[in-house]
C-alpha cells in the first residue's frame, strides 16, 4: 500500500515538474524558454501552457518534413536512449497522461474485462499508430517547404486536447473564435478515452499510445528490468493475477506491455521478483520450467 502510494507521489511530482509554468495556465500562453530545446521522455503536449519541454512524438512528426534524412536524429536518439535505459518504466512512473488514467481507473465505476484474444489484437493498434500516424504519413505527405501535418497530434492525441486544448481555448479569446469541427472531434476522442479509462486500466497506453509502443520495443533489453528468482518463486501466479496490464510476470517478467508499476513485486509474498541484477542469473531459467 505504501509502495503504491509512493508511485502515485512520483507520478504527481513528475506531472507538476514537467508542467511547472503555472502562470501560463491563467495567461492562456505557452512557455517559450530555452528548456523547450529539450524533449521530455514522456507524452506531454508542448502546447500545454505549463509544459517546460517538448513532446517527443510531436517533435518526431514535425521534424519528418524538415529534416534532411526524413527523421530527427536528435529526437530518435533521445528516445532510443530512454528506451534502452528505462523501457516502459517511464510510462508507469513519469507520464502525466498515464497518471490521469490511473486516477480515472480508481473511480468506482463498472470495470470491463476485455477477452484475451481481442485484447491482444487491440494492443497492436499502438504499433500501427506509431508506424503510420507518427512516422509514415508525416514523411510521405511533407510539402516542398518541409512542413507536414502532425497526424497523430491533430486527429488522435487526447493528451494534447486535455493539457493544451482545454486550458488554451478556455483562457485565450482569439482561439475561442477559431474553434471548429476538429476541436469537437478531439473532445470526442478525449471523452471516449476518459470514459474507457474508468472501465479499463490505461486503455490509451495499452491500445493507442505511440510512445508506449516505441518504449515497448526496448522493454526486453532495457537496463531497468525485472528478474524472477527461481528458487524463491512458488509459481502461485499471484503476480499475473494482480497485473493491471495483464502480463504473465512469472513467465515473461520483461514483457513489452509491462509498465513497471511494481504491483506484482509488491504482491509477491516470497520476494521473488527483483529489480537489481543477480550474478550468474539467466533469465531463461524460469521460462524453461514453465515450458515443461
Amino acid at each position: 500500500m505504501v509502495k503504491k502510494f509512493k508511485r502515485s507521489i512520483v507520478q504527481c511530482l513528475s506531472s507538476i515538474l514537467m508542467n511547472a509554468n503555472i502562470a501560463g495556465f491563467w495567461r492562456g500562453k505557452i512557455y517559450t524558454g530555452k528548456s523547450k530545446n529539450l524533449c521530455l521522455p514522456i507524452l506531454n503536449c508542448y502546447s500545454c501552457p505549463g509544459a517546460l519541454g517538448a513532446c517527443p512524438i510531436g517533435s518526431l512528426q514535425v521534424s519528418a518534413g524538415c529534416s534532411t534524412y526524413g527523421i530527427s536524429f536528435y529526437v530518435l536518439g533521445f528516445l532510443v536512449l530512454m528506451g534502452v535505459l528505462f523501457g516502459r518504466l517511464l510510462c508507469g512512473f513519469l507520464c502525466p497522461f498515464g497518471f490521469i488514467q490511473d486516477l480515472l481507473y480508481k473511480i468506482p465505476f463498472p470495470k470491463l474485462r476485455i477477452p484475451q484474444k481481442l485484447d491482444r489484437g487491440m494492443r497492436f493498434g499502438k504499433y500501427l499508430v506509431l508506424a503510420f500516424l507518427v512516422l509514415l504519413l508525416p514523411l510521405l505527405f511533407a510539402d516542398s517547404y518541409g512542413s507536414t501535418i502532425p497526424y497523430f497530434c491533430k486527429y488522435l492525441c487526447p493528451a494534447g486536447s486535455l493539457e493544451g486544448g482545454i486550458p488554451l481555448v478556455s483562457m485565450n479569446k482569439p482561439l475561442q473564435a477559431t474553434v471548429g469541427w476538429l476541436f469537437s472531434w478531439k473532445m470526442f476522442v478525449l471523452a471516449v478515452v476518459i470514459l474507457t479509462s474508468m472501465m479499463i486500466y490505461r486503455p490509451f497506453c495499452k491500445y493507442l499510445c505511440p510512445l508506449g509502443a516505441f518504449y515497448a520495443l526496448f522493454n526486453r533489453f532495457s537496463f531497468y528490468r525485472y528478474y524472477i528468482i527461481q528458487n524463491k518463486c512458488t509459481g502461485c501466479g499471484l503476480c499475473s493475477k494482480v497485473c493491471p496490464m495483464n502480463v504473465e510476470t512469472m513467465k515473461t517478467p520483461n514483457h513489452a506491455e509491462c509498465i513497471r508499476c511494481g504491483m506484482c513485486k509488491n504482491k509477491c509474498t516470497q520476494n521473488a521478483i527483483q529489480v537489481k541484477k543477480i550474478r550468474n542469473f539467466k533469465e531463461e531459467h524460469y521460462e524453461k520450467i514453465y515450458k515443461k
Binding site: I30, Y31, T32, K34, K36, N37, L38, C39, C45, Y46, S47, A51, G53, A54, C55, G58, S59, V62, S63, C66, S67, T68, S72, F73, Y74, V75, I149, P150, C153, K154, C157, G160, S161, G164, G165, L168, V169, L175, T178, V179, G180, L182, F183, W185, K186, M187
Partner: peptide, 21 residues
C-alpha cells in the same frame, strides 16, 4: 546538425493541430 532548433521552434509556438484548432 542542430536539429534541436526545429524542436525548439515548434515547441515555443502554439501547435494548432495539437489543441484541435
Amino acid at each position: 546538425n542542430q536539429e534541436y532548433e526545429s524542436v525548439f521552434n515548434k515547441a515555443i509556438n502554439i501547435c494548432l493541430e495539437c489543441i484541435g484548432i
